[in-house]
Write a protein that binds this DNA or RNA. Structure first.
Length: 399
DNA sequence: TCTGGGGTCCTAGGACCC
DNA sequence: TCTGGGGTCCTAGGACCC
């Protein structure tokens, strides 16, 4: 049986979702004017998370600083994000997709793959894809692109063709015509650095990459990356649509300051905040961590990072924070201002038992109690938010 | 123009063990 | 006395994704 994969991608997801919400509240449609979503619209340091199509026509792109976008378009409408709303929209979108095939892999909050091999057997895949796209639009109010191909790579490449609200195919037989003329940067996993390296050797299009000697490519990007890139450039991808949701392998949080900081007390406060966030998350998900890492970013964007192993896995905020503080003092002497500070944990286990140490810090019980109260407060705040949210929650059906 | 936040995976060198 | 090769763990750094 022929393999048929769909890749469904919400068009300018965060912007579309906020636009749908605002339209329902009686505001004009953001999608029709130059507009963007940013993390914190009042902060000059924030960057753009999503831009409307009229904004994109003015050269405004995701990941641009808000200040730059404002120069390109002084009348730009800037709105903040709403994670609860995003999650709701994502849920509605995924649930419609699941009706088309249970073999679904969620790739991010606004993208998924569907294995449609069975569901499309004997049918026209484009017709099915069009029905899916139109159903999302009529029931949820936002548009998607559907890419149709014989594997995940081709489906994903296809969904990236002309937007919005379109269905495109990229079958093996169409690779030469539709994919090979594209620049190497358009290929999945070719980022800025790889593009620079490839173009410096005269490799500009995916077609040129597909034709290149793999030994030569290995010397450019390493053997493993070369094998992968060469397969992709030729439109080959044998990876299955993974329905299992993988467990988290790391948790991290970081804070960029509105002004670079020199006072150790300010930096420590930020470190405390991110430690609380990360430790809370691992407790919420019943993890303990064995590795703690931290980094600081300086004014010139250079990064200093440290990591260390714990004698035993922990989920205690104070233990994580103390290691991070120690490492901070090893990389930072307070002489150069800090732009950003971050903290992460890896090497996670679900082990419920805890090895008792004869030398356990007598304050440990106090630390745990502190964490319990922190978690309780967080849960209460969450409940209040959800309650307020339920009241204004729209149905995902047609209105 | 001046660059967020949260992830995954890979590489390379050094330490240590057999 | 000086020598091998392989495996694993740790750390730092980098590339990529959305």
């Amino acid at each position: 049986m022929k393999r048929i994969i769909f890749h469904i991608d919400v068009n300018s997801a965060f912007l579309s979702w906020i636009a749908v919400k605002m339209v329902r509240e009686g505001h004009p449609d953001l999608r029709l004017v130059p507009s963007v979503v940013s993390g914190d619209p009042s902060d000059r340091r924030s960057i753009i998370t999503a831009a409307s199509i009229p904004a994109k026509k003015l050269g405004i792109r995701a990941a641009q600083p808000v200040s730059m976008a404002l120069r390109l378009c002084p009348s730009l409408v800037i709105v903040g994000g709403d994670w609860e709303w995003y999650k709701e929209c994502s849920k509605g979108f995924i649930s419609i997709c699941k009706d088309y095939s249970p073999v679904l892999q969620q790739f991010s909050i606004d993208e998924c793959f569907l294995d449609m091999s069975f569901r499309c057997y004997g049918k026209d895949p484009v017709e099915v894809a069009t029905r899916l796209k139109d159903e999302v639009k009529s029931r949820l109010g936002f548009t998607v692109n559907v890419g149709v191909g014989s594997n995940k790579l081709l489906a994903k490449m296809a969904s990236d063709f002309e937007k919005p609200d379109k269905v495109h195919t990229l079958w093996d037989s169409e690779v030469e015509e539709k994919m090979w003329p594209l620049g190497v940067r358009d290929l999945l996993w070719v980022g800025k650095k790889t593009e620079e390296r490839l173009t410096s050797y005269g490799i500009r299009t995916i077609g040129e990459l597909a034709a290149i000697d793999i030994g030569f490519l290995s010397r450019l990007v390493g053997r493993n990356a070369a094998t992968q890139l060469h397969e992709y450039a030729n439109g080959r991808d044998y990876s299955p649509v993974e329905t299992e949701v993988a467990e988290a392998k790391s948790y991290s949080a970081e804070r960029t300051f509105s002004k670079d900081l020199s006072d150790p007390k300010d930096v420590d406060r930020a470190l405390f905040n991110v430690a609380c966030i990360v430790a809370h998350r691992i407790r919420r998900d019943r993890f303990r961590a064995s590795t703690v890492s931290m980094f600081v970013k300086y004014t010139d964007f250079s990064v200093a990072q440290k990591q260390c192993q714990l004698p035993q896995p922990t989920d205690v905020t104070a233990v994580i924070l103390n290691e991070a503080r120690r490492m901070l003092s090893e990389v930072w002497d307070g002489s150069s201002p800090i732009r950003q500070v971050g903290l992460g944990v890896t090497k996670l286990t679900h082990d419920s038992y805890e090895q008792m140490s004869l030398f356990e810090d007598p304050k440990m019980e106090y630390y745990r109690e502190w964490d319990r109260r922190y978690d309780e407060k967080k849960a209460e705040a969450e409940d209040t938010r959800m309650l307020a949210y339920e009241r204004r929650k729209p149905s995902s059906g047609s209105e």
